[in-house]
Amino acid sequence: MIHADRLSKVFGSYRALDNVSFEVNQGEVVGFLGPNGAGKSTTMRILTCFISPSSGGASVHGHDVFDDPLSVRRSLGYLPQRAPIYPDMTVWEYLEFVAKMRGLDASTFRSRMKKIVEVCGLAQSLGKDIGTLSHGYRQRVGLGQALVHDPPILILDEPTSDLDPNEKAELIKYIQQIGKDRTILLSTHNLNEVEQACARAIIVSKGRVVADGALEDIRAKTGRVRYVVVVDEKNALKGSAPKDKEVRELLEKMKGVERVKEIPTDDRAHAFELAGEQDGDLRGQLFRAFVEKGWVLLELRRDAQKLEDVFHELTRSDERLARGYTDEDDDDDDDGDDDDGDDEEKKG
């Protein structure tokens, strides 16, 4: 349904997209992920024929973006990032304008509006000027605009970024519901949403596709699993209650443990997150070690890696570049102190 073939886009001397290829099939809801500036919006703009790729090609619903941009646009609903909409129109006027431009007749428009109002929660705002709406409501109008002609393909650029949790949930529910027989490409920074709504994700970083596949496969991509260990901070079976440093030391020394990270809890427990090989299982070993020390284990869990961890892993080079690191030193925090020697206060 959506087919991108070795897309590249160069802005001046900056290569925003570099050989991006992917495919989205009918009935798929695909999460399009990547750090800021990775090229998600640029890709979507190419797919909606707003801009052209510097090289490569793409087709949507069987129509080529170069040869037949009008058919491409007809077959899709598109919500650009930040939903830029004319502020001087009312919500109803704007949606009516879009419907007319999309060739909907008045009665179809009215019947579609019932659904739109329900899904986007616009009942109270139809008569308001868009310029006076809050950001979240503007985004809802943008969504309404993308859904008004009930398109077979939806391209949504961060559709939930400004929505409140209720509307987010409503939208995700709707996407799940209509996603069964439609094709949806959805960019977002909220990985929970992806886990809820999408079966597949594409992760881009610095203009390249770094992962593309079913969520399970992506989670397994790092070859690790995640353990969560929670230890009682106040009591112990023998000896004194453990300090967080002691627990960390024990965990770090243990064979097979790759990364130890303390996670926040209340003041009754220490909680740690560990990474281990996908094939092994450290739970027995962990339990024995704690029993030997006489510490009280409150929780011990082995999960698949969270999508978030995989995301960090796959886009780390991007992240490091953005923060100005050049070598491998992870803990280096170069918060340069700003020199503001010129601003001397003069007292009379």
């Binding site: 703009r45 909606t48 024929c49 707003f50 009008l70 058919s71 646009r73 007809r74 598109y78 650009p80 930040r82 939903a83 830029p84 909409i85 004319y86 502020p87 879009v98 431009m101 999309r102 060739g103 943008g142 605009q145």
Partner: peptide
């Protein structure tokens, strides 16, 4: 400058 052009042009218009 407001970005509404993107909304307008990605409707099926020439």
């Amino acid at each position: 400058s407001t970005g509404t052009l993107e909304m307008l042009i990605t409707l099926p218009v020439n």
